[in-house]
Structures are given as C-alpha cells and as structure tokens.
Design a protein around this nucleic acid. Structure first.
Lengths: 386, 386
DNA sequence: CCCCTACTGTAAGGTTCCTTTACAGATACC
DNA sequence: GGTATCTGTAAAGGAACCTTACAGTAGGGG
C-alpha cells in the first residue's frame, strides 16, 4: 500500500462503482444511486456533479410517476469514449466499433490478403469502421483484438499464431507505435469464453469452461469468475491433449497417442461422417442428426463420445460447474449434442458439469473482444484527468 | 455495498493489514508499521493503541542501534488465540496445536481404531494435544481438519472419503455441535498444496499445481494464488484421469482406458519394480535410482514417463508455471525425478512448467491444515468484539 | 378544490479518520 | 560536546462522508 493514492481512494472507488452501475443498469436517479453505491443522497449528488463536470455523465431524462417531483435520471455520456474490436481470422478480419456504453455503432470487414501486413490490415479495417460510425480514430480509447494462437500474458504480445504467419511477436509493439493508444490482444477462444460469461450461457457462473469446436479446437478456462490464461498463455490449448480411446468402434483415426485435435474438429468430423456412410460435411451431419435424421444418429453419438473423452479429463482436473459447447460444431449440435456429451462425461468420471450450447448470437469472438475493450476503455476514461 | 459496515471499513482494513504484517514479519516499530500499511506515524500509533486495548498486540521489546531513542517493538500477543490442526489418515490421526502467531506448541497422535466414531477420535486427539500445549479446548478458536476424499465447497462437509468409512456427510455438523466453534475440513492433497504455497516450493507463484503421488493420487490446483476446489470439490481427482500410452515398453498394466491411478501410485510402483526385475518396494527403487543405482535407472525413467503422461494433459489445460511433486514418491524422487518428469512433459506438449520436488519437511497435510486454521482463527480473533 | 403525504434537491453543520506541523526528549556519530 | 537523526505526543487541519432541516413539487383522499 502506498500513501499517495489513498487520498482519493474511497472517492474514486465510489465514483467508479457509480459509473459501473449506470453502465450496466442504465439511467438512474440520484437517490437510487446513493442506495446502491452505499452513499447518502447528498454525497451521491456530489458524486454526480463531479462526474458531470468531467463530462462523463449527464441528465438523460426524468422519472415519471411517483409522488414528489420527477427525479432526474442520470446516465453515462456515450461520446465519452469509443472502442474498436477486431476478430482476426485467416480469411477474414471483422471489426466493430462501440461507444463507452457498449452500443455498437458500426461493423466492418476486410480480406486480409488485401493488406500487406497486420498493422496495415488493422488500420484499414478500423479506419473504415470508424468512418461508418461517424467518429475519428483519435476518439478511440483502445483497440481490442482477437486472434488464434498464444498470447504471452506478461507482455500481452503474440507468441505465435499458426494460421496467421504475419501475426508474430512484435505485432503488439508495431500496433502501439502506429495507433499511440492501448492495444489488447487476446486468444480468440478465450474471448468467446469472456463473451459467454458476460452475456451468455455462463453468465454468473464462477467456474466454467468453454470448449470451442471448429476448425481449431480450444478451451477457455474461467476460474472464480476470471479468465485463466496460464503462465505462458497456453492454458486451454487442448488440441494437444492426448486422449485415450483412439480405438473407436468405427475406427478411423490413428491409434495410440491420439491428440484431441485429431478426434474432433471440423476436418475430423468430415472424415468421421464419411466413415459412417454419410454425405455432406461433418457440420451438416450434426445439423441433420439434431433435426432428427436417423441415419446421422450414430454419427452424433460417436461425436459426443469423442468430445466427452477429452472433456472428462478436463473435468477431472477442474471440476467446472458448467461446460459450454461453442464453435461451429457446438452451435450446430445445440441442446441435443450438449445433453449427450454430458451423459457421456458422466460415464467417464466423477465430476459431471452441466453441458450447454453457446448462447451468444453473432460472432462470440468479436463480442468478447468488444467486452474486453470496453473494460479497459472504461478504465481509461475514468482514470484520465481523474 | 451496504451502508452500515462502511463506518469502520477503512479502519478495520488498516488494523487488519497491520496485524497481518506483524504476524508475517514479526515485531515492528510504530514508524515502520506506518510506512508499510500506508499510514502516518501518528495514525499508526492510534492503531496500535486500539489493538493493544483489545489485547491483540503488546510491546515485546525495543529496537537497538540507530540514532534516536530505541523505538518500541510491537508484536502480536501469542495467547490471543489457538488453533488445532488434524490430519486424518486411515491408520493414524495426527494433530498439532499452535498459537495465533503460528508457533507450534504440541503435537499428538491417535490410532483411529481406538475411537468409535470421528467425533470421538477428534475429541480424544485434540484433548491430548491441548493438554500437552498447556491450554484448554475452550481457548481454541477453530479446528482445521485434513482428510482424503471430496469436500463440498458449498457446505464444507465431506461428500465421501473412500479410505475412511466413518467419515461421511454429516461429520461436519456433528463436529460443530460437539465443539461449538468453527470447523474446517479440507482435502488432504489440497492442504499439501496450500502448505507448499505458504512456505514451500510454490511460494509466491501465482499458478501452480502439486501432484501428490503416494498410496492415493491427487492434484492441488492453485490459480492466481488461490486454491481451486471446483464446483463440487472434485478438482484435482486425477486418479480418475484417463491417460493414453498404456502400452508401456515393459507393459504391466491394463490396455485401453488406463486411469492415471493405475499407472502411478505406491502399489503400481511396486508392480513396476518387479517387472523391471528389481527387489524391494517401488519407493525403495526410486530412492536407489536417485542415489545412483544403475539397475534401478530404467525403472525411474519409466516412472517419469508415466507421470509425464498424466501431467502433460494437466499442463495443456492449465499451463501452470510450476509443478510440485509431493507424496512419498515425489519426495523420494527429489530433483532427479523432477528433472526427468519436466523433460518428459516437454516432449509431450507445448506447455512446460518447472517441475520441482516438495520443499516441506514433516507432514505437509498437517502443515497445510495448520495454515488454513490460522487464517480463519486470525479472522475470528480480529472480528470478535471488533 | 384543498390539504396531506411522499418525494426531490440543496444547504448547513457534524462525525470519522487520517494528515501535517511542531516540539520535547533520546541516542549515536564526529 | 555539539549536531544530526530518530521517537513519540500534542495540536490543528483537511478529506470524505453523514444527518438534519427545509423549500419545493407531484399525486391522492376527503
């Protein structure tokens, strides 16, 4: 504990709590704010005056009904700051711009092959999205970026991203130099986990995991309500997980040290579908089975069994309360697949989480990036000229 | 945030911080305490007067050397409270009594077969230990108990303990009724992890795991400096972990879904030692190999490989900074085994923790129980008549 | 229609808790 | 022996919150 920052510590804490309340619950009256933050009406008024002077809150209306005068409703000023979030994929870059309240103002896309390097690609995408949103790049408080690959939790820089050869260590530094503002990079699966936690299936759950089943395979680990990245940012790289039971009934995969990646993933699903004599891609067959196609039924059962093989190990280590199935396969499988996976996990070990499909519509990675960006943008806005 | 407890919130926080400082760093002067807690000399003096009036601190000496007058040294009064910690094993119950400063006053043992039920066994052991310590049972602020088995993190009660048929759900309630004071029950392996973190190999490490390799097999998971128990208290029950690679070169175990428990444990080691043509128990062979016995060399290598098979999966999920090998096998293996395990993990996946042997002397479970008990006893002492 | 009740919002004064300043006294170093 | 440096207490001050008090406004009952 240092001495200096204590003078305003309580006041800052209360001011910040008030801002967070207004951001999450919307406009609020002076009296109610006081009750929720734990301050008297008078002090709450002083607090709002302070925040108003700083341009962070304003009166946005008046409460109708009730006895006395119509109480003024205070809300956060949307133009207090903006955030850009990006989802970097091998074939597409998507972006979203939102104001400090979380209202999405514009989205944008870019084919990464159009740009020469990561910085160019990000600049072009962000420039387009901010123009659509009617703001300038200077008004952005921070940039939040989701990529595949591993991020070093100490530096925040990329360690390596297999599918994106241009995105390597040093990108963070380049982006910071180019944009001159906070840049956040996070693993895409972790961001999907964050999105699910803030507004999806795992909202309010302390210990959960999100299994991302798509072209790549990944796991977001949330412990005690916080994302767990691991010492080197490698937590959740379950593509490498060695699972037993390679000898599947309709054996199609390599024998001994089968990596989880080779058992489940969009590619492995395609192969498996053919082995079951089904036409169409693996994801199509999942959809067919979910919609009641009897021919695709055994395929779905085998998929659930394979998923459970890997997830059972995870549950034995972490014993999460909830396991969210996400990614293209998780979304396609829905409740049906989730229920089967849960049953299969129950047959493999003592710890059985509730298994559910993703509850995020749209791109969960972009959503998670936006959430992460908003968190730090709010810190920025609040801290500057405090 | 509620209104009521805010009046003394800052004062309580500072008082508590001061107490914790004195408990961890020993006696301290008024001025130094102020600097460390972040208070002025004057306020630190008032704080110490308050704690002195409550009988929690006293002047324990004077600092020699230095310029001015010899500053008084303030320290925590040992008799402010006592704790009893117990380690419940199938064949032995051990206990330890300490004062609030953590000084161990007495230990005790009991053969559990001498007592009819858990409450009787605990009462007898604690009665004996407190007598040896020269205190009464009434002076104990809390009881801290380590057992095998799973503890429900919501209730704190035992869910089941395989090796201890009498220790089942309801024991917590019985003990609370009998002792009329806080009772803490925790899984033995988790307590070993806690001990390692507070005074052992993983001290100061944020993300670590402790692998307990003994008759049973277990894992203590520490994430962000805090023990992770899991939704149902089942985190770390890696005996059930399914590991591939059952086809060992000198194959002695079942083929397909080999549980980690069947690969490594004192019993499996014994079998493996025989398969390698060695005489003596598995643990003896580990010791022999560590001390340079060339015949036991391949046995140790195979043991390291087996351990790495399970630990690699854990590292892929958690990416811990450090992995501590504990239990009889971990202790016997020492640095030699740890280095080999680390090398083997490196060959199996991308996340490689530093692997080290336990650094706790004596019974780590009892030590961890004591630590946990001290934490709540200090809360108790501080909160009561606050 | 009028009055009462219930609420908003501000002003004034009070409490808690920490801080700075000031000073008397003690101890080591030169 | 003088000085610099430290301890410990006293006095005054400031920060941040609180309660009380009151003027003013909206709805409901008689």
């Amino acid at each position: 504990m240092s001495r200096a920052p204590k003078t305003h510590l309580i006041r800052d804490t209360n001011d910040r709590a008030a801002l967070d309340l207004m951001l999450s619950n919307g406009p609020i009256t002076k009296t109610r704010l006081g009750e929720l933050v734990g301050l008297s009406k008078v002090t709450a008024g002083q607090l709002l005056t302070r925040l108003g002077d700083r341009g962070l809150v304003e009166v946005v209306g008046a409460q109708q009904g009730g006895r006395g005068p119509n109480a003024a409703l205070y809300g956060v000023v949307p133009s207090a700051g903006y955030v850009a979030a990006l989802h970097i994929g091998p074939d597409q870059i998507t972006a979203s711009v939102a104001d400090i309240t979380g209202t999405e103002l514009a989205t944008g896309e870019l084919d990464p092959h159009e740009a020469s390097d990561p910085v160019e690609a990000v600049r072009a995408t962000v420039a387009h999205a901010t123009r659509s949103a009617g703001i300038t790049m200077e008004q952005l408080r921070c940039l939040s970026i989701g990529t595949p690959g591993m991020i070093d939790p100490r530096t925040g820089d990329i360690r390596f991203a297999n599918d994106l050869p241009d995105w390597r260590a040093g990108v963070l530094e380049d982006l910071r130099r180019s944009f001159q503002r906070p840049i956040l990079i996070e693993n895409d699966v972790n961001l999907a986990g964050l999105a699910e936690q803030s507004a999806g299936a795992s909202h309010g759950v302390k210990d959960s995991v999100l299994a991302w089943i798509d072209r790549g395979l990944g796991l977001a680990v949330i412990v005690d309500g916080r994302l767990h990245r691991g010492a080197g940012g490698g937590a959740g790289e379950i593509g490498y997980l060695a699972v037993p039971g390679a000898s599947t009934p309709h054996g199609t995969d390599s024998p001994q040290h089968a990596a989880f990646q080779s058992l489940v993933s969009v590619e492995a699903m395609d192969t498996l579908a053919r082995a079951f004599g089904l036409s169409g891609s693996g994801v199509d067959c999942v959809r067919a089975a979910v919609e009641g196609d009897a021919d695709a039924e055994p395929f779905l059962e085998e998929l659930a069994r394979r998923l459970a093989l890997g997830l059972a190990g995870i549950c034995v280590v972490l014993d999460p309360e909830l396991c969210v199935l996400a990614g293209e396969v998780g979304r396609a499988g829905g409740e049906v697949l989730a229920a089967r996976v849960q049953k299969a996990i129950a047959s493999l070990g003592p710890n059985v989480p509730t298994v559910v499909p993703t509850a995020i519509s749209g791109d969960p990675v972009l959503r998670g990036a936006l959430q992460m960006g908003l968190d730090t943008a709010r810190d920025e806005v609040f801290a500057h000229q405090g």
